[in-house]
Amino acid sequence: MLTRRIIPCLDVKDGRVVKGVRFANLADSGDPAELARRYMDEGADELVFLDISASHEGRGTMRTWVRSVADELSIPFTVGGGISSLSQARGIIALGADKISVNTAAVRNPRLIAECAGLLGNQAVVLAVDAKRNDSGGYEVFTEGGRTPSGRDAIEWIREGVRLGCGEILLTSMDRDGTKSGYDLECLSLVSRSVDIPIIASGGAGSVRDLFAAFEAGADAVLAASIFHTGTHTVGDVKEALAALGIPVRKTR
């Protein structure tokens, strides 16, 4: 039986992991490769790295850390954040990443999805969608890290992304992101019923119960940052708790 995936997410700025990852006994808690190794050993099913560097110089570090992470990992990982061209995407895959995720650039130029899928395969293209609930009961796509409303309906955009060839949807609820109040289950359920590719739920995880609820709502995988980074839960603990609740997970211990 296909297991549900647990995916820790790491934000990287200027080549360093930020957002307060706290691991005990870690020589360098900001080193992407070292943290990647730690999460893999804990039983993470995949990892997602988002480069949030604002400067050109910061982005320039990408080649170095993506290669280091690739050297360390024998599980799949995705790299996203500011990818705006096919050559950039191809470069990241060539360094050893399994998938790239596109967000703002894809909204501006949807053909980017088709180009990447055509060259790298559908499985390598993750469409990241930041969705925010609007007054009319729907969801609107936001770009540029959630700062800019795009005017696009999230469900329509996701359907278009699937038509263009993305292999997975990384769905982040702007309303819940960072709140630890649980994923937006309504949005998740709506998206999961609308497409036939895997959905990764993101934004709002605060407890194992939240992850469980996301799976029940139709998520194939869950992305979580703070609950793992603060050291409150290890990936292994979370998997054991989910298994006890009847969710099929890959056990690594």
Partner: peptide, 28 residues
């Protein structure tokens, strides 16, 4: 779901392959 993506178990279907394939292991 038209893509099978993620970790799933493999079961040895014909005796003899257990010697080099871990029965029940999860693969990507």
């Amino acid at each position: 779901k038209r893509l099978h993506m993620g970790w799933n178990g493999i079961r040895v279907a014909v005796p003899g392959h257990e010697s080099y394939i871990p029965d029940g292991a999860f693969m990507y």
